[in-house]
Amino acid sequence: MTATTKLNGIAAVNAAIARAMAQDPKVIVLGEDVADREGGGVVGTTRGLSTRFGDERVKSTPISEQAIIGAAIGAAIGGYKPVAEIMLMNFTTVAMDMIFNHAAKLRFMSGGQTSVPLTIHTLTGAGVSTAGQHADHLEAWFAHAAGIKVVAPSTPSDYFGLMLSCIDDPDPCLMIMSAMTLRTFEEVPNDLAPIPLGKARIVEEGGDVTIVAYSAMVLTARKATEALKAEGVSVELIDLRTVAPWDRETVLASVRKTGRAVIVHEALRNHGVGAEIAATIQEELFGALKAPIRRLGAPYSPVPFSKPLEAAYLVQPDDIVAAVRSVLG
């Protein structure tokens, strides 16, 4: 029996960064309030790291997202492996030039001479009354930039294993930590191996319909899956885990088997990651499909404040159940 520790997503990311820092002196940490003097991160993601590894390797920054990512890119080119915290995903917009024009592209534009082994982690997610500028899921923006990998875990173990892989990766990675996924605790093996980027996880095996989800929507889809089970519907639920590059093989193998797919994300439905997955499924499996592919996501609206609007903005278990029923005809 390997020893385990009870962790939530935040503690799991913390443990992964700590393990990487202990193993590799090149791993460094920066971001607003990340050092212990400032509380070890706004939700404690980096708590204890500055005390353990010193103030030179773990640096609190001013409120300067552009300077944070810029410095991280420079340090990465200079041979380090920075782990940068951008407090909330909406604040990545302030650093978008650095992320999109630089981090994502420098390897290619330099003909492979320079590279940016940078990890950014950031919180987001609706459902907690933070309204229009603190809750967006912007993964499609980053997935649409060639040169950056995007992970969006839903369980403590996945947070742990994917953070290890992000830090280890030779290229820029963005980890999205969605509020609703961070509440659950799980026993995580202390010696958990890195979870490879781009590999989905089959949460539930089934034969009637494939549900593809990631991040907080895995939790919502699990509730829907339970309800559907009670109705006798056999759902195969896939947690994508990595949004870019995504695991085509696992998804296609599942839909080949079930012939039906429902794709769910918290981000806007329009122009979302679901569209990419749906398009790929129909290109590859047109003949095997028994029903049109359904996509669920947020309506075309900024995240609203008012409670009933926020609830309507988020995909609910019932919406998934209804979509599954509709593809079952």
Partner: peptide
């Protein structure tokens, strides 16, 4: 009710933008 406490706006009294950024 769409903006909430971080985005109150009321042009009539000259409150044009409230930002959370």
């Amino acid at each position: 009710g769409k903006g909430g406490p971080m985005h109150l706006t009321h042009p009539e009294s000259g409150v044009m933008v409230t930002t959370g950024i």
